[in-house]
Each structure stands twice: as structure tokens, then as C-alpha cells.
Simulated scan of single mutants.
Amino acid sequence: MLTKNIEKIVLISILALIITSFSTRSKIDVLIKKEIKIVFKIDSFSKQSITISSELNETLPLKITATNLFKIKKDEALLGYYYLGKAFGKAAYFDFIVIFNENLIISKVKILVYRESHGGEVGSKRWLKQFIGKTISINLKYQKDISAISGATISAKSMTNEINKLLKTINILKNNKQL
């Protein structure tokens, strides 16, 4: 009898985890679509996953998968790109998006899901605006190029580091004619 109850609890827990992960993913997809429509001032678009060779991927600061780097197109015209990433706060990861224009200049950075009770200031529009206009040839320095945030030091440093890795990755992909 006890074994049956444990099996039921395990099954219910697994189902709840699956349902929660799908709803979080769909919320993220909705937020991404909204941000792309705002940045490019469009009603509809298509996205195309960017695939690269495993040999090149091994050399990149950030690994590219079928679910994290995309071309953004309107009809057949290239509008830009977006990257869906994760950065680490004090105790949990948070999800963010970086939208690039067709010239690989950052147009928008947004925190999509922040999972901690402290450090959420890293998601403020004012702080994130510092990344807009940055190019793939730059290396950002926290507290010099990017302002610190009191109460969100770990998240802000982590976000700056992830953006730097992304810029280096995009630069390598461009130089290898993958973008």
C-alpha cells in the first residue's frame, strides 16, 4: 500500500514538473515574440534556427544549439538575430534575450524570467539600456563600461560576462561566415 502511494506521488510530481516546464517555455516564447515585434516595429515575423558545425561550436565561448540562436526574418528579408541565454544569479539561473539588428549591433536586452527574491534590479530597463548599441568587437568591463547595481552585484556581473561571451561568439560566427 505504501509503495502504491509513493508511486502515485512520484508520478504526480513528474507530471507537475512537465506541465510547469511547458508553461514556462510558452511564457518565454510569448515574451520573445512581443520584444521582437516592438524592436522591429512589425506585426509578424519568422525565425530560423542557426546551425553550425560541431567543430566550430567547440571553439566558441557560448555553445550554439538549435534553441538559442535565431535569424529574424520578415518575409525573406533579414531583420536581425536573437539569442536566448541564461545567466547565474546568487542561487539560480535567469533567462534573458539579446536582440541584434542585421548589422549585429545590440538593439535590446531583456531579462525574461528572474527566479530569485534578491537582485531583480538587473532586469530594470534603465540598467539594461547600457548594452544597446554595443557591437561584437567590444569587450565590456563591469563597473567601467557597465554600471554596478547595489543589491544585484552577482547578477549584474554575471549578465555582463554572458553578454561578453555572446559578443565574442557572434564575432567568431561572423568571421567564419556563419551569420
Score class of each variant (00 low, 15 high):
residue 11 L to Y: 09
residue 173 L to V: 09
residue 120 G to Q: 06
residue 16 A to S: 13
residue 93 Y to Q: 13
residue 81 Y to E: 12
residue 168 K to Q: 15
residue 165 K to G: 07
residue 87 A to W: 01
residue 167 L to H: 07
residue 39 V to E: 08
residue 3 T to H: 11
residue 27 K to R: 05
residue 113 V to D: 11
residue 42 I to Y: 02
residue 15 L to M: 13
residue 11 L to T: 10
residue 75 D to G: 10
residue 98 V to R: 02
residue 4 K to E: 15
residue 50 I to Y: 00
residue 54 S to M: 07
residue 172 I to V: 15
residue 124 S to V: 05
residue 28 I to W: 00
residue 170 I to Q: 06
residue 163 I to F: 06
residue 6 I to E: 12
residue 152 A to D: 08
residue 170 I to W: 03
residue 92 A to I: 04
residue 137 S to G: 13
residue 121 E to D: 15
residue 122 V to C: 05
residue 54 S to R: 03
residue 160 T to G: 06
residue 83 Y to C: 07
residue 72 I to P: 03
residue 104 L to A: 05
residue 152 A to T: 07
residue 73 K to E: 09
residue 146 I to L: 08
residue 1 M to N: 13
residue 91 A to M: 06
residue 112 L to A: 07
residue 36 I to C: 02
residue 163 I to M: 10
residue 92 A to G: 04
residue 119 G to Q: 04
residue 125 K to R: 14
residue 14 I to F: 12
residue 38 I to Q: 15
residue 53 S to T: 13
residue 127 W to V: 04
residue 163 I to W: 09
residue 154 I to A: 10
residue 160 T to K: 04
residue 167 L to F: 06
residue 123 G to W: 05
residue 96 F to G: 03
residue 94 F to H: 04
residue 47 K to P: 00
residue 156 A to T: 11
residue 26 S to E: 14
residue 115 R to C: 03
residue 26 S to Q: 12
